[in-house]
Write a protein that binds this DNA or RNA. Structure first.
Lengths: 205, 205
DNA sequence: GTCTAATCCGATGAAAAGCTCACATTTGGC
DNA sequence: GCCAAATGTGAGCTTTTCATCGGATTAGAC
């Protein structure tokens, strides 16, 4: 039976939460610098400055570390997103802030972002992660509903599409050695507003 | 030293090219059904109905198998693309055919497509693959130049963006158990034509 | 039919990675 | 200070995967 994904033991003292954090930081660092190939429990433990044994105290296996990393990232990103989506001002301004946040977040560790995205599709994601994912999508849909002429029913679909589009463009730019943030932002906004302005094409028979 | 990526030996007889094909088919099948985790040389050989030894006759290591798979896929996709981009009719019709081809190709083996895409970012790609990639982008850019009011200089960037956007949307739909091809096509076209219709947003200071 | 080069085979060793466990150390409550 | 519970350690066992090599088999030229 493959090891489970949920944490093995909950840290009770302060030092152990520090250990868990160190492990996640170490994992993130290794993924960013050496990719999935370099990601193994021994390397993560060394990088985190703890022993493998400690790692296995809190995580039943390496996939559990990955799942925890995904969860943490989803949490962080949702939090940033919620700040950016504050309900004041024009909906276009909110969308721009959202793009800003996404660009900053994903371009900060482009390789890591890419890997987490990939792994998220493979791992059965825990409730908290999928909840965060849903919340983010609803948040975007809410903004889209503030657009004049928006069809409320179609906003969920549009939100999902916009998320995927933005991720893809940022991700591609992140593979460049010297990403052009301003140009990237311009292109993401162009794609987003273009998608929204475009009346859905007529279905062919 | 990690094994190289270029093929080790070129097949000379008919049966050996059949072996190489079987290996690539086996690899594709395993990636589609068991993902990257299931992808190891022994499993590929078994699935291909050959022995590991034969695999290593033609590939110096598993990454070489992956590289060959990526190369074959790029070749195939470029060929389909070239057919679809035939220079007759409206540019919009050509773009629609392109989307059709992309949807069909990528939705045929969604997991495989996703993995190849991911691995392409990791592996140093051989000349033929990057050449095919370039050709495809130029092909799309050519179509975009036929659009009225198109800025020829900006078409390369737009082509790259459209490729990424289409890939992302198809990929996302491919993760559904029952993809909705028609709806997907509609959304991809919406994103594409929307992007193209949208005047690039003004740069903020 | 014979001969040579090409191809194929798969047991087997080497290497890497996953994971455990017996024991050491630290913490916090009393 | 003392003690129980929590936490930390890392050598080393197990499992998985990579890759090779000596020898068997097959194809195609003559």
């Amino acid at each position: 039976m493959p090891p489970a994904l949920s944490p093995r033991k909950r840290p009770r003292q302060q030092r152990s939460t520090a250990t868990v954090d160190a492990i996640l930081d170490g994992a993130a660092h290794i993924l960013e610098s050496h990719g999935l190939e370099g990601f193994n429990t021994n390397a993560v433990a060394v990088r985190a400055g703890v022993s493998v044994g400690s790692l296995y105290q809190y995580f039943p296996g390496k996939d559990a570390v990955m799942a925890a990393l995904i969860r943490r990232d989803a949490r962080d990103f949702l939090s940033l997103t919620q700040d950016a989506a504050a309900n004041d001002g024009a909906w276009t301004a909110a969308l721009e802030r959202l793009v800003d946040v996404a660009v900053a977040h994903q371009l900060d560790s482009p390789t890591l972002a890419r890997i987490l995205d990939f792994e998220e599709a493979r791992l059965p994601l825990d409730p908290e992660t999928s909840q965060a994912e849903d919340a983010m999508q609803r948040l975007i849909a809410e903004i889209l509903r503030r657009a004049p002429g928006a069809q409320p029913a179609a906003c969920a679909e549009a939100a999902a599409d916009l998320l995927h589009i933005a991720r893809a463009l940022i991700d591609a730019e992140g593979r460049n050695p010297a990403p052009d943030r301003a140009g990237l932002k311009r292109r993401v906004l162009r794609a987003a507003f273009g998608y929204l302005a475009q009346p859905p094409p007529i279905e062919h028979r």
